[in-house]
Amino acid sequence: MTQEDLRTNLRAEAESLGASLPPLLAEAELLASTIMLGEHGRRRAGQGDEFWQYRPTHSGDSARMIDWRRSARSDATYVREREWQAAQSVTIWVDPARSMAFSGAKGRVTKGDRARLLAMAIAVLLLRGGERVGLAGRDVPARPGRGQLLRLLNGLADGGEDYGVPEAEGIASHGRALFLSDFMGDLTGAEAALAKASDRGARGVLCHILDPAEEEFPFDGRTIFESMGGTLSHETLRAGDLRSRYLARLAERKARLSALARAMGWHYTCHHTGETAQPALLWLYRALQGGR
């Protein structure tokens, strides 16, 4: 087989593989490719033989882990860490509730579609950087490598209750976490999940995803408001009279989420589905890497 034949076969194989990618993963890969990260956000993980850093010994470190030559130069003992040991575990929770299926305009993506796109795109970036990524409460533990992408994709789900409750199961001790939700339900669930994650020393991001209609409340006259699951319904003849009270309640909810995140050492951001996903993805990546 000639070199030209080999290149042709490889090109055909690559095109076939690309065509077989699920649309969401293909879109996430494309979105991730638009983000320029510079040299790297965090050094790539090695195979266990690349020097990362010296750190003081912790309780539980064995004697064989101590670098005695470095320790001899000070009164403390130090461990020589390798790059792969410093990789982070990042656990993602994507709200599967019915409320996430809302879109306020024809042709605009739903909140759920945007949340899943951001989740998969951030996973692409993190896995590319050597991190381990998993899903909270979905029996998809954090693992490294590109092969994890399909596991993450298959672990994403729709349906369930009208409003979602964040899950902290699966978040690693001293790891990172990302919650993507409209946070339209009772916030005590979010408070409990953040408290549980923080007890493990985990830090992360609350990404509040809203449709522009939920921000602007463009309703007037006779209007029937229903939850996506149909369990809640309210009819009014003068929807415009509710606008100021609704906007005040929404502002209170945002402030509560922001204060909750700040108290737990997390970050908070609000993203609208009427905006492009790229700025949100870059912000989330930097926040998870500690750059915000």
Rank of each mutant, 00 (worst) to 15 (best):
H271I: 08
G155F: 04
M100A: 08
G130C: 07
A157Q: 14
S89K: 11
G60Y: 12
D95A: 14
H267P: 03
N154W: 06
A157S: 11
T188I: 09
C207W: 00
S198Q: 14
L6S: 04
E50V: 12
E81S: 13
N9A: 14
A192P: 08
S173V: 14
F183G: 07
D199M: 10
L37S: 12
R114W: 12
G204R: 01
Q3P: 01
A261V: 06
S59I: 15
R256C: 05
L178G: 01
L180E: 00
Q148W: 00
P96Q: 12
K106W: 07
R222K: 06
L242R: 09
G38K: 04
T91V: 13
G159A: 03
A248L: 10
A202M: 01
S227G: 13
R146H: 13
F217T: 01
K111V: 13
D199I: 07
F225R: 04
T269H: 11
S33A: 15
R203D: 03
A259V: 07
A105Y: 08
A197T: 03
D5Y: 02
E50T: 14
R108Y: 05
M264V: 10
A287E: 07
I171K: 02
A123S: 15
D61L: 10
G46R: 08
H271S: 13
R55G: 01
M184D: 05
L194I: 12
L194N: 03
S244W: 01
T269P: 00
L25G: 04
V94D: 11
A157W: 00
G221M: 04
A45S: 15
Q88T: 05
S59F: 12
D67E: 05
G137F: 00
P56L: 13
S20G: 10
G164H: 00
K254I: 09
